[in-house]
């Protein structure tokens, strides 16, 4: 992997139940996926810092087909895009929604090992959260 697109800090910190992203040293823009350049100001300096583990569900789908052999035992599984309060749009999995429609719902991160690779962020309805 190209060093400038190395997102391993994000995955390592998920193991510590923390959501961590690159913050631009120049303008503060929070970016993900990882990159060596800030897309706002083009600055190269950055610091990995934790963010508030909260956001809103943009949308979600349920895979009933395994598009890779490694996914055969996982189907059906859901994938969602969550818009975090820090501005990052994060691919993730939802948990704890039952039959409720998650689109627009307030969510918070929790951490589970869903792929046998260690803890990763998944999102559950926020305590006291309301749908927007």
């Amino acid at each position: 992997m190209d060093a400038t697109t190395d997102g391993s800090v994000f995955w390592d910190q998920a193991g510590n139940a923390t959501l961590t992203f690159q913050h631009c040293d120049e303008c503060g823009f929070v970016r993900w996926p990882a990159a060596g350049v800030c897309p706002e100001c083009l600055g190269r300096g950055f610091t990995w810092k934790p963010v508030e583990p909260r956001g809103t569900v943009w949308s979600w789908v349920v895979y009933h087909r395994a598009y890779d052999k490694s996914l055969r035992e996982r189907i059906p599984y859901n994938v969602a895009l969550v818009e975090l309060t820090c501005g990052v749009r994060l691919l993730t999995r939802l948990t704890g929604f039952g039959s409720a429609d998650p689109v627009g719902a307030a969510v918070e991160a929790t951490f589970e090992d869903i792929a046998g690779t260690g803890l990763v962020p998944v999102f559950a309805p926020a305590a006291g959260g309301t749908a927007s």
Binding site: W11, Y67, L71, Y77, V79, L91, I114, A115
Partner: peptide, 8 residues
Amino acid sequence: DEASVYGF
């Protein structure tokens, strides 16, 4: 990473 972890 996201694609393989979440199956996207």
